[in-house]
């Protein structure tokens, strides 16, 4: 059994989102091959956890993917592929998978599953992922605090073309929270960019 956190997005209470986090994943290649084969049992959004900046980063793309699937305006086949696609700033689906999706060498993994039908529950997802993901399950707190802890901010900045981080000005370092605030600023721009993509 894997640890799964169920998120209820405001305004979409009917579609809970099941999210699981893993580290030291050993069988990323297998999981990816299941996606490539379009095995219906593996209809997940498997994400590279180093590309997720903050919980809001993930949840915002999740919301947009869900909204697109509910208003029948997805650019991809499923709500799950739409989530991977939504994270990328451009309209290239392959590129979205290369940057945000699972690769054969992924060790830190986020798995997302929409409960679009009643048979998909926290338990069912937990059982299935526990069985097939070879890695250490990491519990996610109520607010998703753990999503983002493995983020490679440099890589994220590059994908969203945010340029080099500006040198911190003298006197601005207060109580060691500079990094969190910087991330909050990036998050704000990134959420805007994924909202605007394709339009």
């Amino acid at each position: 059994m894997a640890s799964v956190r169920t998120f209820h997005l405001p305004h979409y209470p009917a579609y809970p989102v099941q999210v699981a986090l893993f580290k030291d994943v050993a069988n990323a290649a297998f999981l990816r091959s299941q996606l490539l084969e379009a095995n219906p049992d593996f209809d997940y959004a498997f994400l590279d956890a180093t590309m997720i900046l903050t919980p809001n980063h993930l949840l915002s793309a999740t919301f947009l993917a869900l909204h697109a699937s509910q208003t029948s305006r997805t650019k991809t086949r499923t709500a799950h592929s739409e989530l991977v696609f939504r994270l990328h700033p451009n309209n290239n689906i392959g590129e979205s998978y290369r940057k945000f999706g699972i690769s054969d060498t992924t060790t830190h993994l986020i798995a997302v599953k929409f409960s679009l039908t009643p048979n998909i529950t926290n338990e069912s997802v937990s059982k299935h992922l526990g069985e097939f993901v070879k890695g250490e399950s990491v519990a996610i707190g109520e607010e998703g605090e753990e999503l983002g802890i493995w983020c490679d901010v440099g890589k994220v900045r590059k994908v969203y073309k945010l340029g080099e981080e500006k040198k911190t000005k003298k006197g601005a370092v207060v109580n060691g929270n500079v990094e969190m605030d910087a991330r909050k600023e990036i998050e704000s721009v990134v959420l805007g960019m994924i909202t605007l993509k394709g339009s």
């Binding site: 903050t54 919980p55 809001n56 707190g141 607010e143 605090e145 983002g148 000005k169 003298k170 006197g171 601005a172 207060v174 109580n175 929270n177 500079v178 969190m180 605030d181 910087a182 909050k184 600023e185």
Partner: peptide, 26 residues
């Protein structure tokens, strides 16, 4: 207060406040 608990630390200051401080100092 920042809504996300990730950013709820004691003695916390926003980037904008820092920018203001930096500008005034500059």
């Amino acid at each position: 207060e920042h809504a996300s608990p990730l950013f709820q630390h004691r003695g916390h200051q926003t980037v904008s406040a820092m920018r203001e401080a930096a500008m005034d100092g500059a």
